[in-house]
Design a protein around this nucleic acid. Structure first.
Lengths: 202, 202
DNA sequence: GTCTATACACCGATAGAC
DNA sequence: GTCTATCGGTGTATAGAC
């Protein structure tokens, strides 16, 4: 009689191949651009033929989907770690959340493009891939509420403000800090407008 | 002896065909998406074959380039008209500039995508196409200086703030006004932070 | 000069053999 | 699972018809 093995080796191999494909895709996207990714290049890099990729992903957009999910899962981890260790001062907490997201976004422009812009022709993230994005926003919203920013309109404004600085930075001064050095001041401007008490020593 | 005609009919026809191609391209881009534009579709719409387009544009990206230039020229016209007729109150002026740009951007998402996002594979706007974009920024910068916002860092912050609201609106609530209704408040927040005097009756 | 027909290289995707 | 072969579709180059 067959007994169930402790480890499912075929499944492990399958997952490893999937990760290999995703990793190769990131590398190519960072080298040549997100939209310039081709299945033939991905296959070449891992010693396969292009049609073989269809044994692991149903379509090219399914690879983008897995990359999207992975990127937002990373972001959720980074943001929840930051939210779990916020400084007591409300303004400092607001700055830390903003800086964490700003640095994460600016660190990888291609990743940011996939996560935040509708740039790939027919790609719409699946519900599973979108889940960590929702989780990230929920985490940020909860953190803001804990800091004292509870009005949804204020959260929307905060999101737009930080996102605008990130976009301006990536679009107009990639690799620089022309908008990055405005971040703390922008957060204070926001804090003033929502009536947060001035920070310690300010 | 040949005399130079008053009108250059061949040149007029050529320009008319160029405009026809650009107009057809806008229509298809708005219907199917900017990246889904194909030369065969453009040619079909104006009763041509795809290779014939190369008699008028050197490449597909040259069509995007002409569209880009046209869009920014429109924007420059709209913004300079607004800047030429600003209300006396500084905050009202700041709000008018922001609202004009916000409405222009949100009115045509595909146009905004072409103007403000690097979304087309190998497309980089030419110097001529980029000129009206530079002109628009210069016009806005001059208007802000006239209002009392002269520090380049403040201009950068203003640009990022308005751009962030536009991006959030288009990405998360297209067709709605969830971020649009935050615009006036955001401008006032900015005005407070740069020390602009409170508006009349505020 | 303007448009067409043809052709090419590349793309994502599918079918079927091993 | 991975392969070879191939499909329809894309941007683009070129030669030639009117």
């Amino acid at each position: 009689m067959l007994v169930k093995p402790i480890r499912d080796r075929p499944a492990e191999r399958r997952m490893a191949t999937r990760l290999e494909i995703i990793e190769a895709s990131w590398a190519i996207a960072r080298e040549r651009g997100l939209a310039e990714l081709t299945l033939r290049d991905v296959a070449d890099r891992i010693g396969m033929r292009a049609p073989s990729l269809y044994g692991h992903f149903a379509a090219k957009n399914a690879i983008y989907d897995a990359m999207y999910q992975q990127a937002w899962a990373e972001c959720a981890a980074v943001m929840s770690a930051a939210a779990a260790d916020l400084p007591p001062d409300p303004r400092a907490g607001l700055r830390k959340m903003a800086r964490t997201f700003f640095d994460f976004s600016v660190a990888d422009p291609v990743r940011h493009q996939l996560m935040n812009q509708r740039t790939i022709a027919g790609f719409v993230p699946s519900a599973e891939a979108y889940a960590p994005a929702v989780q990230t926003l929920a985490c940020a919203t909860a953190a803001l509420a804990g800091i004292g920013v509870a009005d949804p309109a204020d959260v929307d404004l905060y999101v737009a403000l930080i996102g605008g600085l990130i976009n301006a930075q990536l679009a107009n001064d990639p690799g620089g800090d022309r908008w990055g050095r405005l971040l703390d001041g922008a957060v204070d401007m926001f804090a003033d407008s929502v009536g947060l008490p001035p920070g310690i020593g300010e």
